[in-house]
């Protein structure tokens, strides 16, 4: 474990806590894409198949349970909770995310580390996470002004993978066997997708103005 990876995991946890805060404090999920939440639940469920077979550390197991539990709770809340689901922007959240799932699964069948059930689903989860934010970014562009908590949620979600890239660079130079090219390339694509959001987020922070994404 290095400082970049720990900071990355804490930033990821922060994004989830901010999202939970927004939903429970405001009893509203306006501006949040249910499709992105569903994709993230699928990412964690397919990435952590080794949850009960490989024990790495208490930290690793606890974080996996937190990520799986929180993502399922958010999807449940947005679909079933009486008050919250009324504020869901269903008519704006129309990204065809099933195509993303199909494309990532096909890619995982072609590019993976080993042709085993666990490795193919692991590669699938890595590719899916890279594009999972797309429905959310499209929804932000369509819904005009973005409330602070939603903006912070997306910012922390993008920042965590950028910290992971620093972690991979650090591990590349400090560990001899280190090679995570699937995760690295996918992580670069994932972080690049946030580039324009980071730009507008920085502008809104600098001008102390409301976050506005151009339509």
């Amino acid at each position: 474990m290095n400082i970049f990876r720990l900071a990355g995991d804490m930033t990821h946890l922060m994004s989830i806590l901010v999202l939970l805060l927004k939903i429970y404090a405001t009893k509203s999920c306006s501006g949040i894409s249910l499709k992105t939440q569903e994709l993230y639940a699928l990412v964690f469920l397919t990435r952590y198949l080794d949850l009960f077979t490989d024990f790495i550390s208490v930290y690793n197991t606890v974080m996996k349970l937190v990520f799986i539990g929180s993502s399922l709770a958010i999807v449940w809340c947005m679909r079933m909770h009486r008050t919250v689901k009324r504020s869901y922007d269903g008519q704006l959240d129309t990204f065809r995310h099933y195509f993303l799932v199909a494309a990532c699964f096909l890619s995982a069948l072609i590019v993976h580390e080993k042709f085993t059930f666990q490795e193919i689903f692991w590669a699938f989860s890595i590719y899916l996470e890279a594009v999972a934010i797309l429905p959310q970014l499209v929804l932000l562009q369509r819904s005009g002004n973005v409330d602070n908590l939603t903006g912070q949620y997306v910012f922390f979600l993008g920042a965590y993978r950028a910290l992971y890239i620093l972690n991979w660079i650090y591990r590349y130079f400090t560990e001899q066997h280190f090679s995570r090219w699937i995760a690295c390339i996918s992580g670069l694509v994932q972080t690049a997708l946030y580039a324009d959001f980071f730009y507008y987020y920085f502008i809104s922070w600098k001008n102390n103005s409301k976050l506005q994404l151009p339509a």
């Binding site: 990876r5 490989d54 024990f55 996996k64 580390e113 992971y164 972690n167 066997h177 995760a183």
Partner: peptide
């Protein structure tokens, strides 16, 4: 190398 070493990240 065991999978535990290869996949130790979240």
């Amino acid at each position: 190398r065991s999978r535990i070493l290869e996949k130790d990240e979240l």
